[in-house]
């Protein structure tokens, strides 16, 4: 039993190192500094949670879902972008593909998003840099957004 415990404790310590390594491989090691305070979230008018970009960098995964709670987009375009994107429809949070299949909306309906992939959120970001302005540690969030927008850069994320 002792050996199992030692193994799992060591695994915990390695996990911490693994996260650090992932952040370095993503090319944005500064994302490790993020306070997760969500100051940036309050300032984004289209409702993007920019901390999600930092999380995407730490995980080195542009496909994680982040909040984008106030972006208007046509359902057809949303489906094209990501059928699993979560939208707000009649006070419900539902996948855009499911909403289309159930006939709640048509492809020409303008919908408001709720959660989308970090790489898609970067595409809809208007780059106003309000998030950078309010960040208590002044993280260059826009650099990550630009990296996610740029397909070449995206590969390394």
């Amino acid at each position: 039993m002792k050996k199992i415990n030692i193994f799992l404790f060591t695994a915990i310590v390695f996990y911490l190192g693994f996260i650090g390594a992932r952040a370095f491989f993503s090319g944005y090691p500064f994302s490790l500094i993020c306070y997760n305070c969500k100051s940036c979230d309050s300032i984004c008018v289209i409702g993007i949670d920019p901390q999600g970009f930092m999380a995407a960098s730490v995980a080195d995964d542009p496909d994680i879902y982040i909040y984008v709670t106030n972006y208007r987009i046509y359902a057809g375009e949303a489906e094209k972008l990501d059928p699993d994107m979560i939208i707000q429809c009649n006070d419900k949070k539902i996948k855009v593909s499911a909403a289309l299949n159930e006939g709640l909306i048509s492809r020409d309906t303008e919908i408001i998003t709720y959660k989308m992939k970090a790489k898609d959120a970067a595409k809809v970001c208007i780059e106003c840099a309000a998030c950078e302005r309010v960040c208590p540690v002044k993280l260059p969030i826009l650099d990550v957004i630009k990296g996610l927008k740029n397909p070449g850069r995206e590969k390394s994320l």
Binding site: N36, C37, K38, S39, C40, S42, P136
Partner: peptide, 17 residues
């Protein structure tokens, strides 16, 4: 005020910082 949890609530709820 320097990155505490209160800021998460203020941020997500859109209340004054």
């Amino acid at each position: 005020l320097i990155g505490g949890i209160g800021l998460i609530g203020e941020g997500m709820g859109r209340y004054p910082s």
